[in-house]
Design a protein around this nucleic acid. Structure first.
Lengths: 69, 69
DNA sequence: TTCAACTGTAACATATAGTTTACATTATTC
DNA sequence: GAATAATGTAAACTATATGTTACAGTTGAA
């Protein structure tokens, strides 16, 4: 699953650490999400949206090929 | 966390069971999500979007008060 | 009013999201 | 090029999303 978290984070001039702290999650979690290595919770996605000031649709999507669950 | 899954599901004329099957998840999972009783995975949200033909932003959001994580 | 389909929910099991600690690698700045 | 900040990642743990089974309440059609 693809996402624009890294780009959006940099646009608001935050490090992974800073974003993580604002959200109340660890830096590793942010790193893994940016790398597409796992499948975050909706609440976490919404928190990220809130901090980086983007909508869900702007940040997260799946390529058609990989649509399963 | 609030969502419009139930409304969107009914609009495309599916039961919880049918929606669940299309997505590859159990009926209980759909029920709990519709009831707002838990916090689905992003992939699952995206699968629901796909089936009911809505965007993430149309289906999922949080009230400002309850924004934590 | 009965029967069947649909839905809510509970207990317990499993998979995986997210944490903690730790270390390695890659910028960046001096 | 050394020091420091930022990032990637791994192992072992914890919390929780989701599955399984089961049963009860609800709704609608006959």
């Amino acid at each position: 699953m693809k996402n624009n978290v890294k780009i959006a984070r940099i646009q608001v001039d935050l490090t992974q650490q800073q974003l993580a702290e604002k959200i109340g999650v660890t830096r590793q979690t942010i790193s893994l999400i940016e790398k597409g290595k796992y499948n975050p919770t909706l609440k976490l996605c919404l928190s990220i949206c809130d901090v980086v000031q983007k909508s869900l649709d702007e940040l997260f999507w799946v390529d058609k090929e990989e649509r399963t669950k």
